[in-house]
Computed example of a mutant assay.
Amino acid sequence: MTPLLWRLSIMYTNWRMDKLWFRHRPKTSTFAILLLLFMIPLTGCSLLPAEEEPLKPPLVKPAQENYRTEPVVRGPIAQEVRGNGTLESYESDAISFAAEGGRVKEVFVRAGDEVKKGDVLVQLAVGDLDIQVKQLELNMLVAKGKLREAKLSENADAIAAAELQYEIDQLKYSRLLESLENKQLLATMDGTITYVAPLEEGSRVEPYETVVMLSDPKKLRIAFQVDTTSDASKIGVGFTAMLKFGDEEIAGKVTQTPSTAPFTEDDILKQRYMNHVYVESDQLPETAEIGDRTDVTVRLQEREDALIIPRSGLRSYLGRTFVRVLEDGGKVREIDVEQGIVGSTVVEISKGLEEGQLIILQ
């Protein structure tokens, strides 16, 4: 056999052997795969370290709860009503047009103006009233001349007729002149204008409608607004009031309350009297004037030696009034109490507590 044929024979034999091996190579069976999957967790368990038991938490003593407390003490207490007041005159005049109104022609004043008695404050339109007055003046002169002539004639009937005509013309003149004068609103006294209705030229003014408020600046009192549904409704005439002007504090007396206000038909005053308390003092600063403001404190009731606690220590629930008391050993106990005077920061306990007990604050 030639070398070439020998080599080709060897190559063919190797090719056949490779093909045969590839066709009959071992394949992994389904059973072997399942077995392998089953063994993995078992071997894994043996490879991982054994789990240790968790440590028990250390025993910790619970923290003691901290309370804010105040002792029950004895001391003075007062119930007060506080407000901010304004100085105003207690002698004021609400000026209005009487008998008849009309259309505004001109307003001569505004709030804060100083006026003298008789000054014109507001002028209404007069139409031709001034001409009619002049005509009646002329008629009176004519009637007076005829009366003189009748007396010279010594005719009794002529004299009576002339006198009657003169009286008629005089009555007409007086009434028309009064109507003309009523078209002017005049100051009734020396004083300060404290209110002017919002009027413009052509505005309609009704009879007895307050147009201007005129006040005497030398006769002053303090007015402060109150809530009549609160403790302020307990304020009475004669109660002491403290007035503070800057750093100066003076005493005064309540002279009028909503329940003692005088009757008035003026709607503005009526509304004001319903919710204002008035205080007067003869110690007002010399510089005090209408419009100045002052702090007002009216004392309703007071007690010098009372059992008192902070208001934040008093509790209410479903109609029950009680306090929480901290006793020896940290024990907390609830005690029903009765309250007395209620101050701005403290409250009187009239029943249920003793001096020295510790009250837990809210």
Rank of each mutant, 00 (worst) to 15 (best):
E206H: 04
A99E: 06
E167L: 13
V205D: 03
E154Q: 02
I193K: 08
Y173F: 07
I159G: 00
K116T: 15
L186T: 12
S179W: 01
M213D: 03
F97D: 07
L129Y: 03
A162S: 08
V109E: 02
E106L: 15
D128I: 08
G127C: 02
E201A: 14
K117H: 13
E209S: 09
A223N: 10
K144G: 10
L124R: 01
V107A: 08
E114N: 15
V212A: 07
N155R: 00
K105S: 10
E209H: 09
E106D: 15
A125H: 09
Y195N: 05
L141H: 12
M213P: 05
D190W: 13
Y173I: 04
P217S: 02
L180T: 02
L121Q: 03
E206Y: 07
T194L: 05
D128E: 07
A162W: 01
L129Q: 04
V107P: 10
R221V: 06
A156W: 02
A197W: 08
A125K: 09
L176M: 08
L141Q: 14
V126A: 07
E114R: 15
F224I: 11
N155H: 00
E206T: 08
L152A: 00
Q132E: 04
E163N: 02
G102W: 02
V104D: 07
N182Q: 04
V109D: 01
A161H: 14
K105V: 10
V205Q: 05
R103K: 14
L129E: 04
D130T: 11
E178F: 00
S215N: 02
I159D: 00
P198D: 08
E106H: 15
R148Q: 06
E100C: 03
L129I: 08
E114K: 15
P198L: 08
A156Y: 02
K117A: 12
Q135E: 10
L147Y: 03
F97M: 12
N155G: 00
P207W: 03
E114D: 15
R175P: 05
V104W: 08
G118M: 09
G112M: 06
L186A: 07
Y173S: 09
I193V: 14
G101K: 03
E106I: 15
Y166D: 06
M213E: 04
E178W: 01
E106R: 15
L180A: 01
V104Y: 06
V196S: 11
R103E: 12
I222N: 01
M189H: 13
A98H: 13
V107R: 06
V115K: 07
D113A: 12
E163K: 06
I193N: 09
S174H: 14
A158H: 01
G112W: 07
E206G: 04
I159F: 00
G101E: 03
D113E: 11
E137T: 14
G112D: 11
Y166M: 09
A98T: 13
A223E: 12
A160L: 09
D157M: 05
A161R: 13
I193C: 13
D119S: 13
E114Y: 15
L124W: 02
P207H: 07
E206P: 05
L177F: 06
T194E: 02
M140V: 15
A187Q: 10
V211D: 00
V205Y: 06
S96P: 12
